[in-house]
């Protein structure tokens, strides 16, 4: 299927990518080709086939509820682009959480 420019813009917003006009045009073209190809193949899998999320026949893997040592604060923050008062500093948050 051919993607519209609006769809590409919507996906870029969901993916938090500030794309250039050129990129939007390019991805609109390339994604359409890839999806077109995929759709033909996908037609093979009918509704009777179950989905495989995990190739391994494993289940019920847990850890016991035991507290373990944490990273020291300075190490936790060592990778931060910016920090203040022991916290990760970010620009203004305009949206409320979900």
């Amino acid at each position: 299927m051919a993607l519209t420019k609006e769809q590409v813009l919507h996906v870029a917003k969901l993916a938090r990518l500030a794309l250039s006009d050129d990129e939007i045009e390019k991805f609109q073209r390339q994604l359409s080709v890839i999806l077109d190809h995929a759709e033909k193949v996908m037609a093979l899998a009918d509704d009777g086939v179950p989905a495989t999320a995990h190739a391994l026949p494993l289940s019920n893997v847990f850890r016991e509820d035991v507290a373990e040592p944490c990273l020291p604060q300075d190490k936790a923050l060592s990778t931060a682009p910016e920090s203040e008062q022991g916290r990760f500093k970010v620009p203004r948050i305009m949206e409320d959480p979900t």
Binding site: A15, R16, L17, A18, L19, S20, T79, A80, P81, E82, F88, V90, P91, R92, I93, M94, E95
Partner: peptide, 23 residues
Amino acid sequence: DGVRYGMRADAPTVSEMNARTRA
């Protein structure tokens, strides 16, 4: 996303910062 590690692009709001950093 530029919050905890890695590169960060300048932007006035966190969502723009995320989008520019990733771009």
